[in-house]
Write a protein that binds this DNA or RNA. Structure first.
Length: 287
DNA sequence: CTCAGCTCCTGCGGGC
DNA sequence: TGCCCGCAGGAGCTGA
C-alpha cells in the first residue's frame, strides 16, 4: 500500500495537472469504495476549482474553492492498491484510446483544459470523502492522527512522549497512526533497521537516546523514499504511471535470508509475524 | 484505555 | 495447464 512517500509522490505528480484547474466533469462508476461515497459526489465536485493539493499522513487533500458552496476538501486515501493516474489505467496498454475505461477505474476527474485523472483501486480499500475545509481537522479520518514525521512537531521528545506507557512492541506502536502519521509496514521495518532497534522491543522501554535515533531514522528513511519516488512492489504507481524505485534500496523489507546490510554486521535478515503482519529485521544489529 | 486478531477486496505467485 | 493456498503497502471493528 502506498505509505507517506508514495502518497507524497502522487501528490507532486498531480499538482501540475490539477492545481488551479476547474473540474469540468467527474464520473463516479460505483456508489462506494471502502465506504459509501458522499451523496451527490460527482455533482458536488463538478465546476469547482482545485485551489491546492495537499497531503496529511497518507491522505491526499484536494482543496476546492468556494464561496458557494463554502470551500470544501476532497479527502482521498489510496488504501492498499489505489492509484491516481494521469490519463487512466488503460492509457498505457491502450494508448490509441485515451478514453478507455479500465477494470477497477472507479472515479474519473476531467479538468477544463482536457486533462483526466483516474482513480483505480482493485482491492477497493481506498476511500474518499468531501468535507468543509475550515473544519478539516475535525474529520474522523484526520482527527486522531499523530504529527507529520517530516514536520516541525515530530522530534525526539514528541516521539518519546507518544511511546511512554505503551506496552506494545515498537513495530505496532509505529504502525499506529496516532504515534506518528504516515508510516506503514515497509517504512517501519526500514526505519527500525536504520535505528538498530528490534521490532519486538517494548515501546515504553526504549531509552531517550535510542528514541532520538529512531526519530532521525524515520525522517531519513522517508526523505530517501520520497527522493526515489516511493516504492513500487505490486500496485503502486506514480501519477504519471512510472514506477518508484526505493524498493531497490530496501535494507530489510522483503529480504528474508539476505545478509544484513549494516556494515560489519554478520547477521542475516529474518522474518517474523507481529499482529498478523510481516516484520523483517536483523536479530544481530537490531536490539 | 490498550491490545491482538479478524475483516473488507482482488490479484499474483508458488507448490502440487 | 489448472487449482488451491498464502500473502500483499491499510485500518476499522470487536472482544478480552
Amino acid at each position: 500500500m502506498p505509505e507517506l512517500p508514495e502518497v507524497e509522490t502522487v501528490r507532486r505528480g498531480l499538482v501540475p495537472v490539477l492545481e488551479g484547474r476547474v473540474l469540468s466533469r467527474v464520473i463516479q462508476r460505483r456508489p462506494d469504495l471502502r465506504w459509501p461515497l458522499p451523496d451527490r459526489f460527482a455533482e458536488r465536485l463538478t465546476g469547482r476549482r482545485v485551489s491546492a493539493l495537499r497531503r496529511r499522513s497518507k491522505y491526499l487533500l484536494l482543496d476546492l474553492d468556494g464561496p458557494a458552496p463554502a470551500p470544501e476538501t476532497l479527502i482521498a486515501h489510496l488504501g492498499m492498491s489505489g492509484r491516481l493516474l494521469i490519463g487512466g489505467a488503460a492509457l498505457g496498454a491502450f494508448a490509441h484510446n485515451a478514453g478507455a475505461v479500465g477494470a477497477h477505474d472507479h472515479v474519473v476527474f476531467e479538468t477544463d483544459d482536457g486533462a483526466r485523472v483516474t482513480f483505480n483501486d482493485a482491492r477497493r480499500f481506498g476511500a474518499m470523502d468531501l468535507w468543509p475545509t475550515a473544519d478539516l481537522a475535525a474529520h474522523r479520518w484526520l482527527a486522531g492522527l499523530g504529527p507529520e514525521p517530516l514536520g516541525p512537531d515530530f522530534h525526539a521528545q514528541a516521539l518519546g512522549a507518544a511511546l511512554a506507557g505503551r506496552r506494545t512492541p515498537i513495530k505496532a506502536a509505529l504502525l499506529d497512526q496516532r504515534t506518528v502519521a504516515g508510516l506503514g509496514n515497509i517504512y517501519v521495518c526500514e526505519a527500525l533497521h536504520r535505528a538498530g532497534i528490534s521490532p519486538r522491543r517494548i515501546a515504553d522501554g526504549i531509552g531517550p537516546a535510542r528514541v532520538a535515533r529512531l526519530a532521525q531514522a524515520i525522517r531519513e528513511t522517508l526523505e530517501a523514499a520520497i527522493a526515489a519516488g516511493g516504492s513500487s512492489l505490486r500496485d503502486y504507481r506514480r501519477a504519471d504511471g512510472e514506477l518508484g524505485y526505493f524498493q531497490h534500496e530496501f535494507r530489510v523489507y522483503g529480504r528474508a535470508g539476505a545478509p544484513c546490510p549494516t556494515p560489519g554486521c554478520a547477521g542475516e535478515v529474518g522474518r517474523i509475524v507481529q499482529s498478523g503482519r510481516s516484520s523483517f529485521y536483523c536479530g544481530r544489529c537490531q536490539r
